[in-house]
């Protein structure tokens, strides 16, 4: 397995505020990687360090096998980024500016013209190409930022909040484009939209308070956990809930609505997941409550909240 991005012991502070503290992880080539974390967790700082916009206090970054500090010039054009909150010059024309960026990335004039046409088509902006940036709506501007990140077909693309502020239709279009890139480029998406990441990404890194809380495959993260979602045929009262809470191996219980339970199991060597589940089912049946569906694992949002210690456990 080749590595597209390797981050080792990366630290960054802004004055007294520590943004990243010894962050280490690696991203395999070809993966669609999610970067998740609460506000202020250090996601944008991490991406800014990787791109060379910020200077790290300590640590090393390797992009596509090259040192991002010493060999940055050799990496120009091989990785790209949708920069959060970056402004594009309001009075400049779209096609002209994208062509300029493509040429700066190393393409010839003819290649740049063709590539700009490609990314504009990809992002559904072909008919806007002659306009100036100030004439675009927020959604179109966002898509244009995404388009510039795809210029030159980079091997590694970082997308910082690619769908924030977009309507569902535009967001779906961006997700579709990202999925189409799978296999061609390694894509790292930083987002608060966990549903989107769950649908899109194969792997993820969770940052919390400047540290890595999890780094690995999405599947392992969602199924490796002990969260179980249960729906039942009739409302569960407090008496039943307290009996379930008292069962061995049940460490968390949340009543999402009167007929939906979220349980957190803690299996041990002597007490497996199935045994705990069996005890729960028996308890419910004793009170004439019939379990209807059971889903192991959890949606990313729930699992994420557990991982960063924000999950309500009752």
């Amino acid at each position: 397995m080749t590595v597209a991005l390797q981050v080792t012991d990366l630290s960054k502070s802004f004055g007294q505020s520590v943004a990243l503290r010894g962050v280490s992880f690696s991203i395999p080539t070809g993966s669609l990687y999610g970067l998740v974390g609460p506000n202020g967790a250090g996601k944008t700082t991490l991406l800014s360090l990787v791109a060379g916009f910020l200077i790290p206090d300590a640590g090393a970054i390797s992009i596509l096998g090259k040192d991002a500090r010493d060999e940055l010039p050799e990496l120009r054009g091989r990785f790209s980024m949708l920069v959060q909150d970056a402004m594009l010059p309001r009075n400049r024309k779209i096609r002209e500016t994208l062509t300029y960026l493509a040429r700066l990335g190393g393409l010839s004039k003819q290649e740049a013209v063709q590539d700009v046409a490609r990314v504009l088509e990809m992002c559904g902006l072909t008919d806007q190409a002659s306009k100036r940036f100030r004439q675009l709506s927020h959604g179109m501007t966002k898509r244009l930022h995404v388009a510039q990140a795809f210029l030159g077909q980079p091997e590694l693309i970082f997308l910082d909040e690619p769908t924030s502020g977009l309507d569902p239709e535009n967001a779906a279009q961006i997700r579709k484009i990202i999925l189409e890139l799978a296999g061609e480029s390694t894509v790292v998406i930083s987002s608060h939209n966990l549903v989107e990441l769950e649908e899109t990404c194969t792997d993820l890194v969770i940052l919390d308070e400047g540290e890595v809380a999890y780094a690995g495959s999405m599947h392992a993260f969602l199924s490796g956990g002990s969260l179980v979602r249960w729906t039942v045929d009739s409302p569960v009262d407090e008496g039943v809930l307290s009996q379930i809470r008292g069962l061995e191996g049940v460490v968390g219980l949340e009543l999402k609505n009167p007929t939906t339970l979220h349980l957190t199991f803690e299996p041990s060597q002597t007490l497996g997941r199935h045994h705990i589940a069996k005890s729960v089912i028996e308890t419910l049946l004793r009170h004439d409550i019939v379990p209807r569906t059971m889903a192991e694992g959890a949606r990313l949002e729930e699992r994420f909240l557990v991982e960063v210690g924000r999950a309500p456990t009752s």
Partner: peptide
Amino acid sequence: ANRHARVILLRTG
């Protein structure tokens, strides 16, 4: 200040 430089710095030093 408005981070336009970042879009350029992705492609040059």
